[in-house]
Design a protein around this nucleic acid. Sequence first.
DNA 1: TTGTTATTTCTGTAAATACTGAAATTGGAG
DNA 2: CTCCAATTTCAGTATTTACAGAAATAACAA
Lengths: 172, 172
Amino acid sequence: MELTPATGKFVLHWGEMGTRWGINRTVAQIHALLHVAPAPLHAEEIADTLGVARSNVSTSLKELQGWGIVKIVHVMGDRRDHFESIHDVWALFQTIMDERKKREIDPTVAILRECVATAKADKDELAQRRLSELAEFMESMSGWYGQVRKLPPAGWRQLARMGGAIGKLIGR
Amino acid sequence: MELTPATGKFVLHWGEMGTRWGINRTVAQIHALLHVAPAPLHAEEIADTLGVARSNVSTSLKELQGWGIVKIVHVMGDRRDHFESIHDVWALFQTIMDERKKREIDPTVAILRECVATAKADKDELAQRRLSELAEFMESMSGWYGQVRKLPPAGWRQLARMGGAIGKLIGR
DNA sequence: TTGTTATTTCTGTAAATACTGAAATTGGAG
DNA sequence: CTCCAATTTCAGTATTTACAGAAATAACAA
């Protein structure tokens, strides 16, 4: 797997963006590589292409599988595992969002609820209010996403195009 | 500024969440502290409350101001700068999203466009397709957010409640 | 001006994170 | 079973990032 100038640039940039969102650089680079790869790659191919250790690739692939955005596939007559990523962008986005919700948003809401209860017991009215507003915001955000996420890829695009209508729908 | 059990727990958790989204722990903790503070705080108060160096607070506050979610305010008869954060959760969310869009999404789309052009020149049709799909997705996401972000806080809540209607609106 | 307090910048250090290479393990194939 | 390729785990190292404390600067008061 040789990187063309375009794909190389993409891989580097994607890795950089990963770090800004709390994703390990190599993990993000591997994802980028698989995203533009014409066929599933095996670990050594990835290691060679990106110039990182084989063991590092192994760990990173586990991470990507944990996020649900990379799957193992098998190639006839080849014992090695091959890996491919979700190519549908909307599905990819959904998968990542689902996972971040599960790992970060939901637990945060739970903690916030606990804090609100404690703040109430402590008679700390201000914190109680501020934190419950925050919890409510995150919950309505979650609920709304839960609806939108069900849309098929085409529906999503349509929703984006209709953007302007949303304001009118609400009616100020 | 003494932390109650509830606010202490919140500050720690918020700091932890920050790191998961690429935000420095101390930066996120300071934000959390200001979020629940009953009045604007000065830097030393923050340093004492969180148990970090005064200089660290200075840098972190600059960072938060750079994100636009913390503002300096002045207190009569006090030379020191005081700091307060945006308390309206919807406004806070918007501010952060606007900034992340400007810093990360927009530049990424620009790079993707460059990559697509290069891939075209290279006759790398697959990469061209995959990357332009990605660019288009990010652009429609941006455009859609640009619409929703104009909604007033109440409109947002309404939209969330209406969630179920979206599917019908699109009509499958 | 000088003294005082607040703030920022900077440099060295500490801590956290990422990574490599070697060793151990797994899972067929013969 | 034995052998061999593929994969994972792990311990040590390197790199990056965060941080404290000192020094420098700024802002004001007297």
